[in-house]
Design a binder for these strands. Structure first.
Lengths: 117, 117
DNA sequence: GTCAAACTACGATAGTTCTCGTACAATGGA
DNA sequence: TCCATTGTACGAGAACTATCGTAGTTTGAC
């Protein structure tokens, strides 16, 4: 038990040592999820699910957040009716130094490149 | 046409600018394929498909190499009866600086960590 | 207690993926 | 020419994925 539950509703997260590279890469290999992770990294803080304006339904959004959580990429905590999402940057940086930043850089590179024709 | 065909049998590859981050991450998010890429990176040279002793059948191996090729991760060329595979490190490093090395480092970290209990 | 907001659960569908086995094709040597 | 090596094509099955819609739960405010 690292942190006290913020709500009666707890969500299962992999412990740091249970996070697997393949699962992380898989979680990041989807348009929507990469977009979520980029926004979380850019903001640097916790964001609610509803903050993201994704072109899919709410239930699909729920699905993508669960994939990210189960892979160990984000940490989710209920705060009232909202479910807050935070990047597990500390855990990822410890396990896979430089990986998250490299992926974020790569995503930025690519979107810049595609934008400039 | 960058390089002359080594054989009458040519294989389709994405051009550098057609390589997509999500496809690369997806290609790398599989046990077998990550293993292939790690061996290619460690060897530094071209290796034939048969060089890899993967715990799957030949047709499955063919499948994985095709996924890697179509994502732009490896370049495949026929040389006699052998099909040689080389990492497209130059292209990947140009498009996504540091990404490949970060993934390879992460894989090395993880396998070391799992080996040491 | 009622209500709206936020999110989940479940069932369904269409598409993709990983895997195999069998049969086939191309190459290079004996 | 015949053969061994190497890899492909095709068909198929089981599992997974992304997506949706509908119906439900939890919470906080009124």
């Amino acid at each position: 038990m690292t942190a006290p539950a913020v709500s009666s509703r707890d969500l299962p997260h992999p412990r740091r040592e249970e996070i697997r590279l393949e699962a992380v890469l898989h979680a990041l290999s989807d348009r929507m999820r990469l977009r979520i992770v980029r926004e979380l990294a850019a903001d640097g803080d916790e964001l609610s699910c509803s903050h993201f304006d994704l072109p899919v339904t709410k239930s699909t959004t729920t699905h993508h957040f669960r994939v990210l959580r189960e892979a160990g990429v984000v940490r989710q905590v209920y705060r009232g009716t909202a479910k807050m999402n935070g990047l597990r940057k500390d855990d990822l940086d410890d396990l896979f130094p430089g990986l998250l930043d490299a992926v974020l850089d790569a995503a930025a590179h690519e979107s810049r490149r595609l934008r400039d024709r």
